[in-house]
Amino acid sequence: MDTRSILIVGVGGQGTLLASRVLGSLFVDLGYDVKISEVHGMAQRGGSVVTHVRYGTKVFSPLVEPGTADILLAFEKMEALRWIHFLKEQGRAIINSQEIEPMSVIMGAYEYPKDLEDKIRKVCPGAVLFDALAVAKELGNIKVANMVLIGVLARLLDIAPQMWEKAIKTVVPPKTLEINLRAFHRGYNWI
């Protein structure tokens, strides 16, 4: 299989690393070659963060290049636009509509863009954009917003939900498994 690329973006502290661990476990189980690249350290402190996930028969570079991603999974709306040029033509986007103001906006040097959805849809008309945080709140724990997003991703990837459940079981702590699985299925049935 040709190498496929998923780019996961968000704001440091949003739980993007957990999403990449689930994907890693899943693709290893499926027998693929996998490479995942993430930046630790300084960039994690509330900055713009990105994780590259690539899988296929043989993967060389761990990095997704601009214009080549099959899927963009964005945990924050403005970060979606910041990275959307990484999508290839016909690439799909899953976007949490949550807005987190960066310090440059808080201090008034910039305005948080109001026309994000239009700009996103110009590049990716079929983007799935929804409030995953609200879904997570409804489920009773805002921390599972990332699992709701993974659920949507699962629907797009055409891999049996049982395989995803196995990967989630491997990655999340047992005491949060039940709520994480519920969040996953809410996402899986979103579209």
Binding site: L81, R82, H85, M103, S104, Y110, Y112
Partner: peptide
């Protein structure tokens, strides 16, 4: 050269103290 056009003039998001 791949034709790639990043979004312009987005507010930067450097790391911050928690």
């Amino acid at each position: 050269a791949p034709d790639v056009r990043p979004a312009q003039d987005l507010p930067p998001r450097p790391p911050v103290m928690c």
